[in-house]
Design a protein around this nucleic acid. Structure first.
Lengths: 208, 208
DNA sequence: TCGTATACTGAGCGCTTGGTCAATGTTCCC
DNA sequence: GGGAACATTGACCAAGCGCTCAGTATACGA
């Protein structure tokens, strides 16, 4: 039964896939080495052969999740819009993509909370979120430059922090209270706040 | 050593205080019955005598934390302001109070995450946050009524949801990344977004 | 003074966990 | 074909967990 059947990298991937399945089902607290081994159909010891420790497994899973999670604003198709509308449109697109990725977002929230107590996790997540925030800076800079008198004391960085913070806040609400959280209502309010006049109608949808 | 020395309610309070100390130090994951007993200087069994189970202890602690946490907008001293400024001022006051309560907010975040998997915890937290949101509705209703043409498709409820969601998002950032999160920069940006013109200067402070 | 209700102790049980390791199966090169 | 290198197993260990319980000390009414 035991033997060198599968090259190491492939087994690692299998185990990480099993870990992802367990973590999205039972959260990080349920991610035990035995549960991963059972999910992958291998023995408990093999997990330690490939990852040394549970911590190694968790960190490898975090790296995998961060790598395969698109965390960059998608500005495609918005080139013709005004800077402010472009920024708004990008935020909206990020928020709209959240509900369909609820499992993954929930797992990321777990890692996020874990990062409060674990320096390695914290650094990885802060780096990723920092890159996400910085990717917004060109958009926010253009928006501020288009109406500088409207944004006194607001820097591209601070506006990017608020924009990504808004998306992150929505992500957490999607995880925590998906039934009450209404994406269309949120976006309509965001539009009304950001666009002081001539507000295009929000997309149709349930509004509380 | 053992005996009926202290009336039940007092011991319960002592144990809850010990649980609070443990939970703010080691988070919910470190809240074991033995740790609480050691913190209170009593035996392990006494925890079960007073709370039946670890779950009972955790729920009692949650109730205590929710009761003693002021989660209602403070509008004192804002009666003379315009509705929009009043809403803004209230949000700012809530956000400014977060950093000094970081331990407590961190504990609430832990409970919040726990609520994802525990119906009892979820119900308690949703009820509290729902009451917080509803307490904002009079403020948001007045703000919308003062400039209805500016808020098409925005209801008092949806604006209250965004306002409290903004505060909650800030709370989580205070817990997760307190060094980078800048309250003054956030508030300045919020002011610029909400007030379309004649923006009063934001309070001085570090801005990233 | 004695009995009873109550608060309290701490050893211990059963279970799960992360982690170790000697043994074993498999592959591949010589 | 034989052996070195590697992947894999599963029993096992120590530690920590929630929880139980027989027993003990205290307060108090009769």
């Amino acid at each position: 039964m035991a033997g060198a059947r599968i090259p190491e990298d492939q087994r690692r991937d299998e185990l990480l896939a099993a870990a992802y399945a367990v973590a999205t089902r039972d959260r990080l607290g349920g991610l035990t080495t035995r549960a991963v081994a059972a999910e992958a159909g291998v023995s408990n010891g093999l997990v330690f052969f490939h990852f040394d420790s549970r911590e190694g497994l968790v960190l490898a899973l975090l790296d995998r999740v961060l790598e395969t999670t698109v965390l960059a604003p998608d500005t495609k198709g918005t080139e013709a819009l005004s800077p402010v509308l472009r920024l708004l449109h990008t935020i909206e697109r990020d928020i709209e993509g959240l509900p369909e990725n609820r499992d993954r977002v929930a797992l990321l929230v777990d890692f996020w909370v874990m990062g409060t107590q674990h320096a390695g996790v914290r650094e990885r997540i802060q780096a990723t979120l920092g890159a996400y925030r910085e990717a917004y800076v060109p958009l926010t800079a253009a928006a501020i430059e288009s109406e500088p008198e409207r944004y006194p004391g607001v820097t591209p960085e601070s506006l990017a922090a608020v924009a990504t913070g808004f998306v992150e806040g929505c992500a957490i609400q999607v995880v925590m209270d998906p039934d009450r959280f209404s994406v269309p209502a949120y976006l309509a309010t965001l539009r009304a706040l950001v666009l002081h006049d001539a507000v295009p109608p929000a997309p149709a949808g349930r509004q509380p």
